[in-house]
């Protein structure tokens, strides 16, 4: 659409004006880490963050989300999107949002997600600091980020703001933007190309080779049990993953014992009973009973199973799973490199 420039000295004013008019969610500090949170003041915004604990999926697909409310046996839908600006998303997370957009839309459109998504304006930004476990530069290289409404790149003396949709363009009203000149555009392009080389960890093969070799390793049960030996089945790797979207659904009554809600909450395929079902008469079958089989399912799900429909791996290289795994076994880079190197 258009490429604009705003001076560093005008930038906070832009964010402040935007906050007056809109609900703005952006990266903010939490202890020594970062989270996406609703901005209450401009100086909370930390565009120099490396990675957030949870990915921005939580805004569209909250950890707990009521799907329906009920009174007795009468149900009411409760899809009620709140418009907001999601400001300062790194490109790997934009890729992930694009995937969950597709997944919640395919076959049966899930408006509990999609309505929140449509009500949100997404502005991407340059990765100024890199997470120590990131590998975004070596995964899904042929998959370009899309679906966002604008992108901010930090260059000398200010920011280049590329608007991609009318939702993105609407934000121009809040700041002193001028047209970016060719030198500024070129500098922004260079910054955004270079950032992709900055991730410290690297998968040592291309996506289709990875998919092929990982798929082939399926039957190596011993290898998978070895990978998963220290697994706690805690599902942390699932929960922090920007492309994981599995959920559980539970009903609960309110304290009046008459009304209540049918609620979905984030689930994870690493949890022990994720694929368990009761067959009756006390019998139950767990279709992924061992730690190794669950560990394998996650890697297959990220590197193999969905590649065809997503056009690339269902992993964007954010490194959150590696950071969140206290046993440090979740890192897909270690797993995949071990497999591709035989």
């Amino acid at each position: 659409m258009s490429v604009k420039f705003i001076k560093e000295t005008d930038f906070n004013d832009f964010v402040g004006k935007m906050m007056e008019a809109r609900t703005v969610v952006g990266p903010v500090a939490k202890k020594t880490k970062f989270v996406f949170g609703e901005l209450e003041s401009v100086d909370q915004l930390r565009l120099d963050y490396d990675v957030t604990i949870l990915p921005p999926k939580k805004l569209f697909f909250p950890p707990r989300q009521d799907l329906l409310k009920f009174h007795g046996q009468k149900g009411t839908s409760c899809i009620c999107p709140q418009p907001k600006v999601l400001f300062g998303v790194h490109y790997y997370d934009i890729k992930a949002i694009d995937q969950t957009d597709f997944l919640f839309n395919e076959n049966n459109a899930d408006q509990n997600y999609l309505a929140n998504r449509e009500a949100t304006t997404i502005i991407g930004t340059t990765i100024q600091n890199v997470s120590p476990r990131a590998f975004f530069g070596s995964v899904g290289k042929n998959v370009n980020p899309k679906g966002h409404d604008g992108f901010l790149t930090r260059i000398n003396g200010g920011w280049v703001f590329e608007t991609l949709t009318s939702k993105g363009r609407d934000l121009l009203d809040f700041g002193k933007f001028i047209d970016a000149d060719d030198a500024q555009k070129a500098e922004a392009a260079k910054v955004n190309t270079e950032e992709k080389t900055k991730s410290p960890e690297k998968i040592k093969a291309e996506g289709d080779v990875v998919a092929q070799k990982v798929r082939k390793s399926f039957s190596e049960d011993e290898l998978w049990e070895e990978f998963a030996k220290d697994c706690f089945s805690c599902g942390s790797c699932n929960i922090v993953c920007p492309t994981c979207y599995c959920f559980d659904v539970q009903d609960n009554w309110n304290v009046d014992q008459h009304s209540g809600a049918r609620t979905r909450s984030w689930d994870g395929c690493l949890k022990a009973d994720f694929a368990e079902c009761s067959l009756g008469q006390g019998a139950c079958e767990n279709f992924r009973e061992t730690k190794g089989s669950r560990f394998r399912h996650r890697i297959m799900r990220k590197a193999v199973y969905s590649n065809e429909k997503l056009g690339g791996p269902a992993c964007v290289g954010c490194g959150r799973c590696s950071l969140s795994c206290t046993a440090d076994i979740a890192d897909p880079v270690n797993v995949i490199n071990r497999i591709v190197e035989g």
């Binding site: 939490k30 202890k31 020594t32 880490k33 989270v35 604990i53 949870l54 939580k58 950890p63 707990r64 706690f232 089945s233 805690c234 599902g235 942390s236 929960i239 922090v240 909450s265 984030w266 994870g268 949890k271 022990a272 009973d273 969140s324 206290t326």
Partner: peptide, 13 residues
């Protein structure tokens, strides 16, 4: 399931 699940959902460091 482990407490980690709830910490992560709460986005606790």
């Amino acid at each position: 399931y482990p407490v980690c699940v709830e910490c992560k959902q709460n986005e606790t460091v």
